[in-house]
Design a protein around this nucleic acid. Structure first.
Length: 204
DNA sequence: TGCCAGGCCCTCTTTAGGGCCTT
């Protein structure tokens, strides 16, 4: 991703792990990055039309009382669709957020036009010596200041954006690639971990 | 504090199994 590229980093909080099993989104957070800077933010709770279970309340801090007054998913997703535009997208473990985004957009007869890239797959390649590649661990590993408010959508998307920018800086420092385009980051995701150094060295 | 699903990724692999990540 070139720093000149516009990318939207997003994160969903949901009722569970699988839209295919009937799970729904309950919150979406996102930050827009332009020229290496955050230029826009989006965060909204959304009412999935049913109660969420105690585990999700405890995990996210989002309660049923908070969702009662929230707009329905369909209304919020229309607003997010406008915010997202045609930007390329980034998420931590993107396959998860991609499934929910596509499922919720399908309910309002919309489709995204941007491509996804996964910050977790990239972190496994760029930060190979991190203890693990959970978002909270990577934030600690990278020395990024945090107040520990994980598992809320905007906070997690902000942290993912910081990790994303730190990985771009690392590629610049280690490999002299200071303007890595989005397409390169996508290819890097699919490069075997053992071949990452060779792959980036050959890019120059 | 967990389960569901699904893709990635490693290995005691490829005619497979299990851990990692996301809520």
């Amino acid at each position: 991703m070139s720093r000149a590229d516009t990318v939207v980093v997003l994160d969903f909080e949901t009722t569970g792990l699988s839209p295919g099993m009937g799970d729904r989104a309950i919150e979406i957070g996102a930050v827009r990055i332009e020229n290496g800077e955050v230029t826009g933010r989006f965060q909204e709770l959304m009412n999935p039309g049913r109660r969420i279970d105690p585990f999700i309340e405890g995990y996210t801090g989002i309660t049923n009382e908070m969702l009662v007054t929230a707009d329905p998913c369909e209304v919020v997703m229309e607003r997010f669709f406008d915010f997202m535009g045609s930007s390329n997208l980034v998420a931590h473990n993107a396959s998860f957020d991609q499934r929910f985004l596509d499922a919720e957009l399908a309910r309002i007869s919309q489709r995204r036009s941007g491509d996804f890239t996964c910050s977790m797959l990239l972190a496994r390649r760029i930060f190979q010596d991190a203890p693990n590649h959970r978002l909270s661990c990577l934030v600690d590993y990278a020395g990024i200041p945090t107040d520990g408010t994980f598992h809320r959508a905007l906070y997690d998307s902000e942290m993912t954006a910081k990790i994303w920018l730190r990985m771009l800086d690392t590629i610049g420092d280690r490999h002299g690639i200071f303007d890595a385009p989005f397409a390169l980051m996508q290819k890097l995701c699919k490069t075997p971990k053992k071949s990452v150094h060779t792959f980036l060295a050959a890019y120059l």
